[in-house]
Write a protein that binds this DNA or RNA. Structure first.
Length: 429
RNA sequence: GGAGAGGUGGCCGAGUGGUCGAAGGCACCAGAUUGCUAAUCUGGCGUACUGGGCAACCGGUACCGAGGGUUCGAAUCCCUCCCUCUCCGCCA
């Protein structure tokens, strides 16, 4: 959520910045008008209430008879106040609704661009491997090895579901455990096991509601939303709280399944495990002081890159231009791994600095020193990494000519020393 | 799910219709004082919106789990919901 004061004081600048992220400035004018009305009414109402309080206090001093005669006027005044309160509530609701639909503004250093086409590759590491045979796509490898079962996934749940068995299931678990170990042991993150369902206030705080309502699963009867990413519970962990400055920065990590309806991408990426309704992810979230967030984004990206590097899989970092930032990000980098089988760069991590956008919604604040006014923290989040796509990259990069797959060195200790995945015996399937 | 108790400021905890943003204590901050990190005393100490001032600041309003209601006036009375604790039931 943007700061209404900023919009009020610098409307033209706000509109200009919103245009950079592809959002029409018209809403700003409507918001400012609504806000001005709201403030006018609030002022009138405040005075009315002050008058009521004053007269009501005087009434208390009067005798019962005198009081009786004054009641008529007082009743009218009370009704007047109630009417004003109703109108004010409506104006507040409208202003709030507009504000909640407005995307974040870009950080000043983010390159201006209209969309995906103008993103910039800012870094690339490791050379794609030269194959002397035609590399298979992961769905071919997975089926050949008997470790990914698409048909049974569909049987159990429906399209966009699959079942991992044997070495794939084992590798999924190995990846999770290994990534968490790197986060916790070497990158100073605190491991968290959050709820996988949260209430609507949390999803509002993270910026997923109201705009992305139909991208999420929810309980039909109760106020539970299945998390689309661990970013939601992690970012909201300290929602509504005022933290002491000494506690910042806070680095959090969690492995969770993620649930997404994927209505927006119907028909896209239907093959393989690239895009499912449920997937695993290790997530990183940072709560930091405002002046450090730009720097913290760089190290967040580096934390994601380190995972790719140790898996020895070619990757690149893409800086999003203003037009591709999405709703909550003020700056964003994607980390992409090369997948030689399906021949594409796979987004395995998306690292964002949300500045105070989520903190304002979720009211996450800190105090620099005792007695100081609370300030909003800055929040950042990034995948560290998304599991299915990482698994795709592992399978496709580490495949051998006989369609077996070599296990990356870093994962072997997590897989009982297994070095090569070969077709599974029938009974294992 | 049933019964009971309860939700008040950073924490503990008073307050059952008016002068309560709310006693008292703890914590915290500032100052004073004592021949050393402790004690004592004095003062300060919520959040948000809003009016005024360049500003430290001054004023108004709202907020006592949430939402409705009664009333001239609600932390206080009534209703609904949520949450916590205890006991019972049920269950992975």
């Amino acid at each position: 959520m943007l700061d209404i004061k900023l919009i009020r004081e610098r409307p033209d600048w706000t509109k200009q910045e919103l245009t950079k992220v592809g959002f029409s400035g018209d809403a700003v004018d409507r918001l400012i008008e609504c806000d001005a009305q709201r403030r006018r009414l609030q002022h009138q109402l405040d005075e009315l209430r002050a008058q009521r309080a004053r007269q009501s206090r005087e009434l208390a001093q009067l005798s019962e008879q005198q009081r009786e005669s004054a009641r008529g006027d007082m009743r009218a005044l009370g009704a007047h106040v109630a009417q004003g309160e109703r109108e004010l509530a409506e104006l507040e609701r409208q202003a709030e609704a507009m504000l909640l639909e407005m995307p974040n503004l870009p950080r000043p250093h983010v390159p201006v661009g209209a969309g995906e086409g103008e993103n910039k590759i800012v870094r690339a590491e490791l050379e794609p491997r030269a194959f002397d045979f035609e590399p298979l796509a992961h769905w071919e490898l997975g089926q050949h090895l008997g470790i990914i079962d698409f048909d049974r996934g569909v049987k159990l749940a429906g399209t966009r579901f699959y079942v991992m068995m044997g070495a794939a299931a084992r590798m999924e678990r190995a990846l999770v455990a290994w990534m968490l170990d790197v986060k916790v042991r070497e990158q100073a993150y605190l491991e968290v096991w959050p709820p996988l369902m949260v209430n609507s206030a949390m999803v509002l705080g993270s910026g997923h509601l109201p705009k992305f309502r139909d991208t999420m699963y929810r309980d039909a009867e109760e106020d539970f939303w299945f998390i689309p990413t661990a970013e939601v519970p992690l970012t909201n962990l300290y929602a509504g709280e005022i933290l002491e400055a000494g506690r910042l920065p806070i680095y959090l990590t969690a492995y969770t399944p993620c649930f997404r309806r994927e209505k927006m991408s119907a028909g896209r990426d239907v093959r393989g495990i690239k895009r499912g309704h449920q997937f695993d992810k290790v997530e990183m979230v940072k709560l930091v002081t405002p002046e450090t967030s730009d720097r913290e984004l760089e190290t967040l990206v580096e934390n994601a890159c380190e995972i790719c590097r140790r898996l020895e899989i070619p990757f690149r970092v893409v800086q999003m231009c203003t037009g591709d930032l999405g709703f909550t990000a003020a700056a964003k980098y994607d980390v992409e791994m090369w997948a030689p089988g399906c021949g594409e760069w796979l987004e395995v991590s998306s690292c964002s600095n949300c500045a105070d956008f989520q903190a304002r919604r979720a009211r996450i604040r800190f105090r620099r020193a005792p007695g100081d006014k609370p300030e909003l923290v800055h929040t950042l989040n990034g995948s560290g990494l998304g599991l299915p796509r990482t698994l795709i990259a592992v399978l496709e990069n580490y495949q051998n000519e006989d369609a077996s797959v070599t296990v990356p060195k870093v994962l072997r200790p997590y897989m009982d020393g297994l070095e090569v995945i070969r077709p599974q015996a029938r009974r294992e399937i």
